[in-house]
Design a protein around this nucleic acid. Structure first.
Lengths: 338, 338
DNA sequence: ACTTGCTCTGTAATTGATTTCATAGAGTAC
DNA sequence: GTACTCTATGAAATCAATTACAGAGCAAGT
């Protein structure tokens, strides 16, 4: 590969002039422009990203940390982020925490070694207390309500309120014993902790209500289907289900229909996400605009980068901007299962 | 952030010695080691990735190009790749071609500017003829049968054979007029072209068979459900469906059950992928190990990187290794819809 | 004629790490 | 004592770009 020196040699100009041309500076003569353009074509030049970012301190790269890139929620988040990344001119790194050789330090490595300009964190790094503090040194946007509690920028839907709304809806539809299905990585995906506190708030509001918490081993339709039997045998009095994901709810619904169970007469089912499958099955659910959230996260990260690009390099000398907390709207989609 | 010079100054050693320590070279005295370790802790040093890769010519970064990161197939591919990337010590970039501001040049930019060491291409860049040739200059592994036809390394399941097997199975089960559902991005996802040639081969083998090709606008359960009506009105004689994806097939199946249509008596349905939803619905399908494929792609890319790391930098001076063609096994999963 | 300002270009420093080469001291073999 | 190897270190070049600074050439204004 040829470099800027080759261009300089080939055109008889200096590297400074060539660099100026490449960066669109004024004060490059027409002849020089023409000569350089020609040389670029001839030598097949393209700039070296490493050298550029070494000099400029910018990489044009950001990363997003998710639990599992193949999970419908996270994959939609990644897709949204990837789309926006192109728009803003960034390359997007994807990091997964459900992997064997994963570790928080490994995830932070790119940001620490300045291989990326900023980080989007959508899943917990444990112990979060420790790493959240660490993250404050960098440009970080979190995509989870629980994660954003620290001094970090946050972008999330309000799980507390949305859970309350969902439970309230089930109550209105006549449910009195509600099974709440936990996310599979209950301990890792900290937003489920927020949901739990919403369950408690709700239970204390209506004394006649009972909440049963059930943990699903993973987040698939298959597991959802298997839960019907478990509910039937362990908690036969359950007449409403609030699921943390559409997949679990859909599986449960399919199993219920298979078993000839009256939905929503005998059992009301409410999902979360509004995936295509929910629409097909007529599953009531809470819609969250996940793709948009991913895109918005990139937008926010971009603003951060712009911000303290102008504040000078390295540490924020001036006062650090207060962390933004952005609530993304959600919407209850009432269909035929509630 | 402190750099290696700061470490040198702080310890009274030279940058050479510090660098040697950091890279685990022999010939660094115990005292020096200790002093450097201390300084690292004190100054909070971490190496600068840009400087490293400028000097070494390696980035420790690879990219994967997919059509849509939220599509079940591609997201599984990405997930597999992301897992393996951690294992091999790479950072993984994800690029999406279903995005508004996308362009082939934009996708190739990281590899051209040497921001990544290698590229995994799982979807077509148009015009593919042109870009395939361009890609031969770099370390590339393709994850699609059609793409790998050029002089590129390829890793794929055999769509020609698997399609034949699927059609053969439908035939055995009594189907005589088979609707083949095209991928949504028929023109982009070139493996569907290979499938089409398999349809033709199959039709020429059995004179009594009829193949009807249907194009779906996208690859969701919703669209699959809407196809039932279209088939019923436009091609009422259809008695078998071969779908390029489980999602379409599942949608169709759900709509058929809803309509009280006898599956597989009146209509046989075969999917592709073996997603959890297929298992729950009892959908017959062709299983492909997508996650593993993603992981394997990273493995192959890693081998490429290792290879011409030893062959010296830049162009392959010696003879270029012949491109590997790796067929991934698939498996017909016979359930209750055929 | 002299100053001022604008356009254009080149020299050289800088970014942070790695590596080649040179060198010096210590230990061992003859 | 001389020759040799082995360990440990530093000075300086290198990787490919950007940019501060200096300076040359030219036109316009006084």
């Amino acid at each position: 590969m040829s470099n800027i020196k080759d261009l300089a040699r080939s055109t008889g100009l200096s590297t400074a002039t060539v660099s100026r041309y490449l960066n669109g500076h004024p004060y490059v003569s027409k002849e020089a422009q023409y000569a350089i353009e020609l040389a670029i074509r001839e030598l097949g030049y393209s700039p070296n990203a490493a050298a550029r970012s070494l000099r400029s301190g910018k990489t044009g790269r950001i990363a997003i940390v998710v639990l599992d890139a193949s999970h419908p929620f996270y994959s939609a988040l990644v897709a949204g982020a990837a789309g926006a990344a192109v728009e803003y001119g960034y390359d997007l790194l994807v990091q997964q925490t459900c992997t064997k050789h994963w570790s928080p330090d490994r995830v932070l490595q790119p940001v620490v070694t300045r291989a990326i300009d900023a980080l989007i964190v959508a899943t917990e790094l444990e112990p979060w207390g420790e790493y959240a503090a660490e993250l404050e040194r960098f440009r970080v946007v979190t995509c989870d309500q629980a994660l954003s509690q620290a001094g970090l920028h946050g972008l999330y839907i309000d799980h507390y309120q949305s859970t309350l709304d969902g439970l309230e809806h089930l109550y209105e539809r006549g449910a009195r014993v509600i099974a709440c299905l936990h996310d599979p990585d209950h301990d890792r995906c900290s937003s489920s902790r927020i949901r739990v506190s919403a369950y408690e708030q709700f239970a204390s509001r209506y004394s006649e209500m009972r909440i049963v918490q059930l943990e699903a081993e993973d987040d698939t339709v298959e597991t959802g289907a298997s839960l019907l039997q478990r509910i039937g045998s362990e908690f036969p009095e359950v007449d409403g289900v609030f699921s943390g994901s559409d997949d679990l709810a859909a599986g449960l619904l399919l199993a219920a229909r298979e078993a000839g169970l009256d939905v929503p007469g005998r059992l009301r089912i409410l999902g979360f996400d509004d995936q295509p499958l929910a629409r097909v099955l007529g599953l009531s659910t809470i819609r969250q605009p996940v793709r948009k959230m991913g895109a918005r996260a990139v937008h926010e990260v971009h603003r951060l980068i712009q911000r303290n690009a102008s504040c000078g390099r390295g540490r924020p000398n001036g006062r650090r901007h207060a962390p933004d907390k952005i609530r993304v709207p959600y919407r209850l989609m009432i269909r035929s299962t509630t």
